[in-house]
């Protein structure tokens, strides 16, 4: 047996799949970042860090970069994503967004018309999310044959009083809620990708969730944990929750909101909608007794009209995420491996 049979690494270079938000992304972070950079604030690897300032106050701090191709797509563009994504990372940590930074990296040759449209979209999304862009930076790099624009936004927010969030609070009997139909964003992006393009009624769901979360927390429901299921989809979030809480999760396929158009697009591309990205959805864990209250609060909000109770937390061993299928069977739901690609098989 030669060494070529056993390689501990898939490649000695970074691959696109390392950016897919799945197993490979975790591996990259665990093997190349955490051994050198680690501390108590970073260690939970949450959507943002909680930084105490003084005895009874904390801020939440987060950052995210945006490299979507193409820059503009039905329902949004890279600018809207950059605002919503960072606002949502703050919001699901239980913070009220206070301000965002905006880092802009442009390639030589980027159309100023495109830039203007993206900046206008950033401004609109920031107004919608009621958060100001308070600092920024621009850089230009030589042309590299990409779409020509990358964005980074960092955000700070004030931790809302009264919300206590964390997988350590999750326990058997809690219920799992989705705020609306899944997979629209990722499938929309697929529909406009070169080599794959099809025409679709789908639109990206990119939206800032802070207001929906305010409504949810004002309802008085005991919300124990929240995530916005972006890369890796709801499967990634649920698998992560299961791993961190040590509890099993059972979800019911029949209850998962998804549009017929998204379902068919996923079928056509050979993708599992559970692993497809969303940019304006919330997965949350709520105490069972408060489920009705939480659902009502979400459904009364424009971004949560199709909110549904999709499953529950159980103490089944070993901890797994299981889907009860429409056909009456069960299957295990896992975090995807990396970038999910359209298949023919």
């Amino acid at each position: 047996m030669t060494a070529t049979h056993i390689s501990s690494r898939v490649s000695d270079r970074v691959m696109l799949a390392h950016g897919g938000g799945g197993e490979l992304t975790s591996e990259l972070i665990e093997a190349h970042f955490l051994p050198r950079i680690n501390n108590p604030a970073l260690a939970p690897l949450a959507d943002g860090a909680i930084v105490p300032i003084g005895s009874d106050q904390s801020v939440v701090f987060t950052t995210d970069s945006y490299v979507v191709t193409p820059l503009e797509f039905p329902g949004g563009d890279i600018g809207r994503l950059a605002v919503c994504g960072t606002v949502n990372d703050l919001a699901v940590m239980g913070a009220e967004p206070l301000g965002l930074s905006l880092g802009v990296i442009m390639e030589e040759g980027l159309s100023l018309d495109v830039l203007d449209r993206v900046v206008a979209s950033i401004a609109r999304a920031a107004r919608e999310a009621r958060v100001p862009i308070v600092t920024g930076d621009t850089k230009v790099i030589e042309r590299r044959g990409n779409e020509g624009l990358f964005l980074n936004t960092a955000g700070i927010g004030r931790l809302r009083p009264g919300l206590r969030l964390g997988t350590e609070r999750v326990e058997s009997g809690d219920v799992i809620l989705f705020s609306g139909r899944i997979a629209d964003h990722g499938l929309t992006i697929m529909s406009v990708r070169a080599g794959i393009a099809f025409d679709s009624d789908l639109r990206s769901d990119a939206a800032p969730l802070a207001d929906l979360i305010s409504a949810l927390s004002a309802s008085g429901a005991d919300v124990k944990f929240m995530r916005d299921p972006t890369r890796g989809g709801v499967a990634g979030v649920l698998a992560d929750m299961c791993l961190r809480s040590g509890y099993s999760i059972e979800i019911n396929e029949a209850a998962i909101p998804i549009s017929p158009t998204a379902r068919h697009a996923a079928e056509m591309l050979g993708l599992d909608p559970l692993t497809v990205a969303n940019e304006g959805k919330l997965v949350c864990v709520v105490r069972r007794e408060d489920a009705a209250k939480a659902i009502k609060a979400m459904q009364d909000h424009p971004l949560g009209r199709e909110a549904a109770i999709v499953g529950r937390v159980t103490d089944a061993e070993p901890p797994l995420v299981e889907l009860r299928t429409r056909a009456g069977g069960r299957r295990i739901v896992q975090r995807p491996y990396g970038e999910e690609l359209p298949r023919i098989c």
Partner: peptide
């Protein structure tokens, strides 16, 4: 069959 995989209202 595909429809059956949707949420009830949809």
């Amino acid at each position: 069959y595909l429809k059956q995989s949707y949420g009830p209202e949809l």
